[in-house]
C-alpha cells in the first residue's frame, strides 16, 4: 500500500516500461523470482533471506513495511496471552512470517506452541484465512494488514486481540523488520540509476500515503486492494508503512533474522545472509 502513489503515477505516466503486479500471496512473488521474471520484489523478510541464501540473484534494497500482523478473533475470553492456553488459533502456513512470529511470541509468553495452544493450518492462504475469520469458521486467527482491517469491518464480532508489533516491543528493542524490498542483481549492475529512481519514488510515495491517508485510500480502492475507503484509512494506520533503505538498518535486519534463525535455521534458509545481502 505504501507504493500506491508510485503505482498510480506509473500508471498515469508514460515513457517507461515499469510494470507493477499486485499479487495475493507471497509464494506467487517467490515464483516470479525463481524464474527471474521479477526485477524488483516486495515479500516477507524471512522469505527474502531464504531466497538470497538459496542463491537467487536478488539483494535487499529497503524495508518498506514494519509490523502488519495482528491476532484477531471473535473469542471474547482472550485478553492476555495465558488465555490462549487450550485454544485453537488459525495460522496461514507453517514456517511463514505470521507463523514464526506467533510462535516466537507464544514462547516468550511462556506457552508451548502446538502443546498449550493448538495451531491450525487448514486455511492455507491469506485470503482463505481472512474469509474464515470473517465468516466465523475460525474463532481466532493470525491475520495481516490489509486483510485484518477488512475482516474486522465485515464481522462485528471480530476484534483485535494483539498487535504483534506491540507485543514484539515488549521483548525486543529492535523493530519488526517484517517486509523486504529486493532488486535483481542484473538490474543493480546494469541500471543502477533506475534502482535509485525507484527507491526515491517508493520512499516519496510512502511518505505521501502516511501524510494524506484519505487520498491514498481513494487510490487503494481504485486499484482494488480494499473495497472501501474507511477500511483503507484504518488499514494504512495499522500497517506501519515506513520506507527505510536497507543500508541504514542493517543491524536491525540482521538482528530480526537472527531471532528466527535461532528458532529454526530453515526459517532464514539455513544461515544468516552474508554481507552481499544488503544493497548499498
Amino acid at each position: 500500500m505504501g507504493m500506491i502513489r508510485l503505482i498510480d503515477s506509473l500508471n498515469n505516466g508514460e515513457g517507461h516500461n515499469v510494470r507493477v503486479l499486485i499479487l495475493n500471496e507471497p509464494l506467487q512473488v517467490r515464483k516470479m523470482m525463481i524464474d527471474g521474471s521479477a526485477d524488483f520484489a516486495v515479500l516477507p523478510a524471512t522469505m527474502a533471506a531464504i531466497v538470497y541464501n538459496k542463491g537467487l540473484e536478488y539483494r535487499l534494497v529497503a524495508v518498506p513495511v514494519w509490523g502488519t500482523i495482528y491476532l484477531i478473533g471473535s473469542d471474547t475470553t482472550v485478553s492476555g496471552w495465558k488465555d490462549l492456553k487450550g485454544k485453537r488459533v488459525h495460522v496461514m502456513a507453517r514456517g511463514m512470517t505470521p507463523d514464526v512470529l506467533f510462535r516466537y511470541l507464544l514462547e516468550e509468553n511462556g506457552l508451548i506452541p502446538e502443546k498449550d495452544v493448538t495451531l491450525d493450518y487448514s486455511f492455507p492462504t491469506h485470503i482463505d484465512l481472512a474469509n474464515a475469520v470473517a465468516s466465523g469458521q475460525a474463532d481466532i486467527g493470525v491475520v495481516s494488514e490489509p486483510l485484518a482491517s477488512l475482516v474486522i469491518k465485515n464481522n462485528r464480532a471480530v476484534r483485535q486481540i494483539f498487535s504483534f508489533e506491540q507485543e514484539w516491543k515488549k521483548f525486543q528493542d529492535i523493530p519488526l523488520a517484517e517486509t523486504a524490498f529486493m532488486a535483481k542483481n542484473d538490474v543493480i549492475r546494469n541500471n543502477r540509476q533506475l534502482v535509485e529512481k525507484i527507491i526515491s519514488a517508493y520512499e516519496a510515495s510512502t511518505e505521501w500515503v502516511n501524510q494524506y491517508p484519505d487520498s491514498a485510500a481513494g487510490l487503494i480502492v481504485k486499484y482494488n486492494i480494499l473495497p472501501d475507503t474507511g477500511v483503507a484509512v484504518r488499514s494504512i494506520k495499522r500497517s506501519n508503512l515506513k520506507f527505510v533503505r536497507a543500508g541504514d538498518v542493517k543491524p536491525q535486519v540482521e538482528a530480526y533474522l537472527n531471532i528466527f534463525y535461532r528458532m529454526n535455521p530453515d526459517i532464514t534458509g539455513g544461515k544468516i545472509p552474508d554481507e552481499n545481502f544488503i544493497y548499498r
Binding site: I50, K54, A93, R94, G95, M96, E114, Y121, S122, G269
Partner: peptide
C-alpha cells in the same frame, strides 16, 4: 500436506517447500 499436523511426512514435505528446500 494440507492439514499440516505437527508431525507427519506430508507436513515436512510442505515445510520443505516453504523453506525452498
Amino acid at each position: 500436506v494440507l492439514s499440516q499436523p505437527e508431525y507427519g511426512i506430508g507436513t515436512l514435505m510442505q515445510n520443505a517447500q516453504t523453506f525452498l528446500n
